[in-house]
Design a protein around this nucleic acid. Structure first.
Lengths: 231, 231
DNA sequence: ACAGTATTCAATTGTTCAATTGATTACAAT
DNA sequence: ATTGTAATCAATTGAACAATTGAATACTGT
């Protein structure tokens, strides 16, 4: 391999060499976001987030588009998403720290991990399972599992009455390293619901070619029976 | 995703952020090598190569073992190999420079790229194709395609008489970014042989789960008919 | 045109990194 | 024990990087 070509590969490594940029990519895996939202969610100053995004842009890992005053960033393509999946896979297999950290405070008894999404889909459609997407509404809108209800973590408590006590509740969020669904499941169990966490998130869906939908929640703020059934 | 977990992912990115380390990983993808060999082939000083290898070791991307005076390094597992494949895939899809560089001076008319290895294997066994592995002998020994002959690039000229003029010759080396097979094919064509390059190398074999063999060449320096036939 | 907002740019700081050099360790052979 | 060799360590240099700050740009709404 030539030095010049190795340097090109290293460009991608450099882009991934900062924890902040990895964090940004992970958020971008949830869908397109404006700079300010990314800065807030990753805990960086606006200018700093902007500069990190430019680095990712220079590495062609993200793309952006201007809409009014805001600049929306997104992953540069599905290749980036599947690469992130393989990076996470590598980290889990090679870095004991990652697996340990993940399973230490991010696991709940009865986690669904590496689940058969086709079977899950069938159970959702049959009404045996209520799927909860506990990410922020924008991330649900960008991409979610078919049949899932948008139930942002901070609104869960207020909407408990919408949830059935006879069906199993499966909550998911951004992926195996996201704490939202863990907290949601623990809360639900405390309230007497039968709840489990689905560890997969958009990165894993992409890797396993799981079908997704996009668009806003079918039941925005209504107080109706939210469990979707076959017509 | 937590900051601490992102930092773990970034460890891997950091390890890949230097062209020299990418180069080392690419050579290690060919098989286990002692430090000195890696330093030589990558054009680094011994101390420098050693330090880069320690960085890769700290990231758990490589492992080593001591044999006598020498320390032999190898990839830490097959997960690393498949990750390298996905890194190369990402680079090709996202960085126009890579694809361009590769196809500029590393392509030969009639390259086999993304070939069906099962079909290739059949033709090799049927004697319709002579497979040449033009990498150094150690790399051939570490892993090669079944039925391939070890024909290091620097010995090709002396062994031209071993090659058939009626069968097609397919040469491969370290992968799409390796120049050895390109040079070999051009040389062979000048001499009137019917030759093509197989762009795949060990990284691609791993990705496509192509069967490989290891061990020394079946015809070390003999002047015998080297074309392998079915018994 | 004007004010307001989202983002980017530019200059600065302290930190981290890559390569070189020379010294040191670990081991094998004799 | 002594010698030689492979690899690593330690200390140094200059270069690249991350975060902060304040200014500049680009666009919207009025």
């Amino acid at each position: 391999m030539d030095h010049a070509i190795a340097a090109q590969f290293a460009r991608l490594g450099k882009a991934l060499s900062s924890p902040q940029r990895v964090l940004l990519l992970d958020f971008l895996a949830q869908g397109e976001r404006p700079v300010e939202a990314l800065a807030t969610v990753s805990g960086m100053s606006l200018a700093n987030a902007s500069q990190h995004l430019r680095v990712l842009l220079a590495a062609h890992l993200v793309a952006n588009r201007k809409q009014g005053l805001q600049v929306h960033y997104r992953l540069a393509g599905s290749a980036v998403l599947s690469f992130l999946a393989s990076l996470q896979g590598l980290a889990e297999s090679q870095l004991a720290e990652v697996a340990q950290a993940a399973h230490a405070h991010l696991a709940v008894v009865g986690d669904l991990d590496g689940v058969d999404h086709r079977e899950l889909q069938r159970r959702v459609e049959a009404g045996e399972v209520v799927l909860l997407d506990v990410r922020p509404a924008e991330e649900y809108a960008a991409s979610h599992l078919p049949g899932a209800l948008s139930m942002p973590a901070d609104k869960l408590r207020r909407r408990l009455t919408d949830l059935p006590r006879n069906a199993e509740i499966v909550a998911y969020c951004r992926g195996p390293y996201c704490a939202l669904a863990v907290a949601a499941v623990e809360e639900l169990r405390r309230r007497g619901f039968q709840a489990r966490r689905l560890a997969d998130g958009p990165v894993q869906w992409a890797q396993r070619r799981v079908r997704t939908e996009s668009g806003p929640s079918p039941v925005p703020t209504n107080r109706r029976q939210p469990s979707p059934r076959k017509p």
